[in-house]
Amino acid sequence: MQVVQPTRGPILLVEDNPDDVALTLRAFRKNNIANPIIVARDGAEALEWLFCEGPFADRDASEAPSVILLDLKLPRLSGLEVLERIRADERTKLHRVVILTSSKEEDDLTASYRLQANSYIRKPVDFDEFIHAVGQIGLYWLILNQPPPRV
């Protein structure tokens, strides 16, 4: 039997709402997801972390996130703009990006997939469903999914 090792890299959670941050962290805990979680409070901060700029200039650049959970409605840079920048840069274009948002407007879905989001998940109101959804994200992106080889 093959033992599947979970992807170890940190999870980058881009989310401006502190309640949602707390609930998402709780959901990770409930699902026994042990990866370190980096929280970026807006789009600009997320890009600074990804590109090792500003306060993250000293970060180990070889440490890539196992998955990026990206909210769409963010102050300063929107989620879609962040996604666009991630896909446009050689260093980050292969990162796994899961859109995690309240919106299920068709325009948002289309725009996200057009910018090559890997998944699009709508946050349910029911917290039990939310925990289940986060568990599925962890199972799929951290365990089942084979990440691209490191360049």
């Binding site: 709402n17 949602d20 609930l23 029911d126 917290f127 939310f130």
Partner: peptide, 8 residues
């Protein structure tokens, strides 16, 4: 969004 907080 606030509904999720209340429920959560």
């Amino acid at each position: 969004t606030p509904l999720r907080s209340i429920d959560g």
